[in-house]
Design a binder for these strands. Structure first.
Lengths: 156, 156
DNA sequence: CGTTATGTGACTTTTTAAGTTACGTAATTG
DNA sequence: CAATTACGTAACTTAAAAAGTCACATAACG
């Protein structure tokens, strides 16, 4: 399969939504992600169902954040995407008859599950707000330029 | 892409090779793996180049183990396969211009790299011989039946 | 020499995310 | 109300990589 890039993509979107007070259309998000609105809507659907964002229709509609980024972990986001398959490597078959094949599968699974646990732990201990913490200053500068005089409250 | 099952497959093969004193043809290995000889040869090529096995041509030819399974770690095997891409999940692009996208990518990469390190560590601390340690007794019994009275071949 | 078996290149199949198209539904504006 | 905007979603196409297949050259053995 092609590499699944939904996680970094929606993280990217959440960070942008946090910077903009008005609803952002799928069209504009599509430009940010270099893709089209329909795919954006499909990808964001999980986040909507999870209650992290809301999408409104009609004029002035689009996507808005419902929760602070400090209250959303990467694990939450990953789950909202349906917990996509993490690995490109896997077992050789389901419940094979051969004992040796089962041993080979078990060993492979053990290593993969250990890796998955590390991945989950890493996602769980990181909030979306944490992503930009290292760049907080740069981003704040950048945001000033964008929003000009308008006042804005930053989550995180 | 389809799930990469080369690691468990070659582990399975190594375990079988360890049980059989004579060279095993790609044809027979193909039966064990439910695939065809050509794919077996391609998959095993890395193990040959790494010096773990040798393939001999002609009558009575086939694959034999060159090293003890206690001396081969799963990490060795994985490397011999060319260290296939572990993850189905990945970043969203290469060196994106947008700062927020980069942050999203970095966070994703951080979690993936942590998971990869765990995977590697797990592979490194396991030898191929370890895989069957839990089943040593059962396998020893099984092997007796196979090599016992009749000279007979093991399926799958 | 004939048979067996590997080594390898070229091609097809399979699988799944990504991408695309189309259209229904809902909300806002005039 | 009508037009426009924007989401929601179904259906389809594209892309990429492992798996699978086929063909054939090469080498070893008897």
């Amino acid at each position: 399969m092609r590499t699944d890039s939904r996680l970094p993509r929606v993280l990217h979107v959440l960070l942008h939504l946090d910077q903009l007070d008005e609803p952002v259309t799928s069209e504009r998000i599509g430009e940010m992600l270099n893709t089209n609105p329909s795919l954006v809507r499909r990808t964001m659907a999980g986040l909507r169902e999870a209650g992290f964002v809301r999408a409104t229709k009609g004029h002035g509609g689009g996507w808005i954040l419902l929760r602070k980024l400090t209250e959303i972990t990467l694990a939450d986001v990953y789950s909202a995407l349906g917990s996509p398959e993490l690995f490109a490597v896997g077992r050789s078959g389901d419940a094979p008859h051969c004992l040796l094949e089962r041993s080979a599968n078990q060993a492979t699974s053990a290593a993969l599950e250990a890796a998955r646990a590390t991945f989950r732990a890493e996602l769980e201990r990181t909030t979306v707000a944490d992503l930009v913490a290292p760049h907080a200053e740069v981003i704040r500068e950048h945001q000033k330029k964008i929003t000009g005089g308008k006042r804005r409250e930053n989550a995180g």
